Amino acid sequence: MTPEVLSNYAQVQELRVAKVVNYLQQNHWIAISHPNPRLIVFEKGVDDRGKPIQIVLPSQDDYEDTPYLLTKAVNLLSVLQSVSFQNIVNAINADVHAS
Rank of each mutant, 00 (worst) to 15 (best):
P3W: 15
P3V: 14
V5H: 06
V5G: 00
L6I: 08
L6F: 04
N8I: 01
Q11W: 03
Q13I: 06
Q13W: 02
Q13F: 02
E14Q: 15
L15M: 04
L15H: 06
V17F: 01
N22W: 06
L24H: 04
L24K: 03
Q26N: 15
N27K: 10
P35N: 12
N36Q: 04
P37L: 06
P37H: 11
P37A: 09
V41W: 03
V41A: 02
F42T: 05
E43V: 13
E43G: 09
K44T: 02
G45V: 11
G45I: 08
D47M: 00
D48Q: 14
R49G: 11
K51G: 01
P52V: 09
P52I: 10
I55S: 04
I55F: 06
V56C: 12
V56W: 10
V56A: 09
L57D: 05
P58R: 15
Q60H: 10
Q60F: 13
Q60A: 12
D61N: 12
D62Q: 09
T66V: 03
T66H: 06
T66L: 13
T66D: 09
P67R: 03
Y68T: 13
L76M: 07
L76C: 05
L77Y: 07
L77P: 13
S78M: 01
Q81L: 08
S82T: 04
S82F: 00
S82W: 00
S84I: 00
S84R: 03
Q86A: 10
N87L: 12
V89C: 01
V89R: 00
N90D: 14
I92K: 03
N93M: 05
D95I: 13
V96W: 06
A98M: 05
